[in-house]
Design a binder for these strands. Structure first.
Length: 627
RNA sequence: CGGGGUGUAGCUCAGCCUGGUAGAGCACUUGCUUCGGGAGCAAGGGGCCGGAGGUUCAAAUCCUCUCACCCCGACCA
């Protein structure tokens, strides 16, 4: 659950309002259908189910389901999107959205639009192809690297296919906005982006072409930016709550986009590509890239036995050395050599810890970006090969992580091939190192919020990044000279924020979080259809067909997105398909039940089946609380 | 970019090692039976074996080149 107050996010408030506003919505559906489902059903305009007024018969729909799992799909969402007939691959990282998938995409878009509009943002649509000049102006033409798809037109002029739109919006705004009175302003678009990923994978989760909502806000000062940033934080929480996803906002690095404060919104899923650190007691949450590791408590133990050199033939990795010497990894130390601002630098970590490259890059002595030195350079700096390096006797700067600096009587490489040192002690056998936090936090580390006052422990979980908000400040507006006049008639460079949501990725993330052995289980809000009508013997039984058709019309009139399976298929086939494509509510109409005036209801996320009087179906959907 | 792998029917794959003119299951078409959880039987349609070149009497199969796709790799120290 998001940090924001639950009351304001409660979708039921909207529902009540919509019910009032929707009077007369189903006016045309009077008569038999109206009677069948009850007149009051017309008042229900489907806000809870977010109707796009979709109705469909399976015989008219490209229901491209397949039984076998495609060979090259690794993650479950990719497999199910292919099997359910939502997408098809055209080329690496490029996908066609089939009718069923597109409906889901549109429902996500609609929720995003509603919430962005509600927050006062204005929708625009910028070109996907952008001139190189703008990117040269911001300096990103050189910085961006091969992820930027560059093109030339017939006049050999340079363009790129936009991976993001800071330059274009900043250019627009500097031309159109003249006065502080026009600020703050927030513009967004929902548009196709292209990033030439090294390795596209996981279907639309990490595709090259993808659909993104991106928004850019402009301000007269930092205080105004903070206000809009906080508003976007709440808006994103509302959006992901309405989408029916389990998510967490986490503190994040700003990466290539630049700027200062930043939060990512992660959908929690084991298949997520990012590791996030969550406190088990307070609301602290951060990308592990960013989470600080607190220094260990207590003081370093006094040195024990004297330093000794031991043979460790063939033992290179921490695991091998630890097994060979029968010393736990947390009593060993690993030494990593990286490029520094003035020659090679040694980074020392406890054997059981991993380097956090972002933290290392932030040290003044370390070159940015972080680069590991070649084996040849290792030889020059230490006289040995990788696998036997240690901090003792090095004539280069030694930077130790807080935990490594706290060790006494530890094990490290001897800078001689096939040998390690035991009982090593800082200050006795080698100088005290420069100490810094350069490691990745691990499960069980103390929570760093308010310097550990909360006494909680960090848990490492996987997440799928579906949203990211940044306070860009003046990175682009300064480079591109986007300014307005303030109240004194002075030109002031605008302060900016930017806010992204991976719309197509949200679809995949929702499946990662909501599926079972039979297929997808859509949250109501983004299901391609809300209700599946499955008649038994639609082609043969007049009674079944008549009742089904009436119910179909009645549900449509009530504003519910309904899919009627009118295929001449065996029931098992229809059940399997409706389960696979994840329709959240299923009504089966059969002669047996009809004789008693009932139909059968099953929720996709429940096991049990219930019998409903045919006449009560409308009432049922109106009053049932969302699963 | 480096390493590995795979391209044969719409899909999943066998055949390739050991050359002799292409197969299975699913899907599709037709008929009969079946009909509440991916039916059975029967009869059919569909592939110039990713592309180009070579070896050979003969190439899906052997050789060379090429294209596409997939997996692993930028944290051994």
């Amino acid at each position: 659950m998001a940090r924001s107050g639950r009351g304001r996010l409660d979708p039921r408030r909207d529902r009540a309002r919509a019910a009032h506003a929707g009077a007369g919505a189903g006016g045309r559906a009077r008569g038999r259908a109206g009677r069948l489902i009850g007149y009051r059903a017309r008042l229900y305009c489907g806000s809870r189910f977010l109707s796009l007024r979709i109705r469909m018969r399976t015989t008219k729909l490209l229901l491209a389901t397949v039984k076998e799992t495609p060979a090259d799909a690794e993650v479950i969402s990719h497999q199910l999107m292919l099997r359910a007939g939502m997408i098809r691959k055209l080329a690496a990282g490029l996908y066609t959205w089939l009718p069923l998938g597109l409906r889901v995409l549109h429902k996500v878009e609609r929720i995003v639009r509603e919430e962005m509009d509600r927050a006062g943002a204005q929708e625009v649509l910028m070109p996907a192809v952008q001139p190189a000049e703008l990117w040269q102006e911001s300096g990103r033409w050189e910085q961006y690297g091969p992820e930027l798809l560059r093109l030339q037109d017939r006049h050999q002029r340079d363009f790129c296919f936009g991976p993001t739109h800071e330059e274009v919006i900043t250019d627009l705004v500097r031309r159109e906005l003249k006065s502080y009175r026009q600020l703050p302003a927030n513009f967004y678009q929902i548009q196709t982006k292209f990033r030439d990923e090294i390795r596209p994978r996981f279907g639309v989760m990490r595709a090259r072409e993808f659909l993104m909502k991106d928004a850019y806000s402009f301000h007269i000062d930092a205080a105004s930016l903070k206000e809009t940033y906080a508003q976007m934080y709440d808006t994103y929480s509302r959006i992901f709550t309405r989408l029916g996803l389990q998510f967490r906002p986490v503190e994040a690095d700003t990466g290539a986009i630049g700027g200062r404060a930043s939060h990512e919104f992660h959908v929690l899923a084991d298949s997520g590509e990012d590791a996030i650190a969550l406190c088990d007691r307070c609301d602290y949450a951060a990308n592990v890239e960013l989470a600080p590791a607190l220094p260990p408590l207590g003081k370093r133990a006094a040195p024990g036995t004297a330093l000794m050199t031991v043979d460790t033939p063939g033992a290179h990795s921490i695991e091998e050395v630890s097994r060979h010497l029968k010393v736990p990894p947390e009593r060993t130390v690993k030494t990593l050599l990286v490029r520094g601002t003035g020659g090679v630098v040694a980074l020392v970590l406890r054997g059981d810890h991993e380097l956090n490259p972002l933290k290392a890059e932030r040290l003044p002595a370390v070159a940015k970006p972080l680069v590991f030195v070649t084996p040849g350079e290792v030889e020059v700096a230490t006289g040995c090969e990788p696998g036997s390096i240690g901090p003792v006797g090095l004539r280069i700067p030694v930077i130790a992580d807080e935990s490594a600096a706290r060790l006494a009587d530890f094990v490290c490489g001897a800078n001689v091939n096939g040998r390690h040192l035991i009982n090593v002690n800082w200050g006795r056998d080698l100088p005290e190192p420069i100490v810094a936090d350069i490691r990745e936090v691990v499960d069980g580390d103390p929570c760093p919020s308010r310097s550990g006052e909360c006494q909680g422990k960090l848990r490492i979980r996987r997440g799928i990044e579906v949203g990211h908000i940044f306070q860009l400040e003046k990175k682009y507006s300064e480079a591109m000279q986007a300014s307005v006049l303030d109240e004194n008639g002075q030109a002031v460079v605008m302060t900016m924020g930017c806010y992204g949501i991976g719309v197509s990725r949200v679809v995949a993330a929702a499946i990662e979080q909501n599926h079972d052995a039979n297929g997808i289980i859509w949250p109501d809000a983004i299901a391609p259809f809300t209700v599946a009508l499955v008649p038994i013997g639609y082609q043969k039984s007049d009674a079944a067909r008549t009742a089904t058709d009436e119910l179909y019309r009645a549900l449509i009139a009530a504003g519910i997105d309904v899919l009627l399976d009118d295929r001449n298929e065996r029931p098992g086939v229809m059940f399997a398909d409706m389960d696979l494509i994840g329709i959240p509510h299923r009504i089966v109409i059969g002669e047996k039940g009809l004789a008693a005036g009932t139909v059968e209801y099953k929720a996709r996320n429940q096991k049990q089946v219930e019998s409903l009087p045919l006449r009560a179906v409308g009432e049922f959907f109106r009053t049932r609380s969302a699963p």
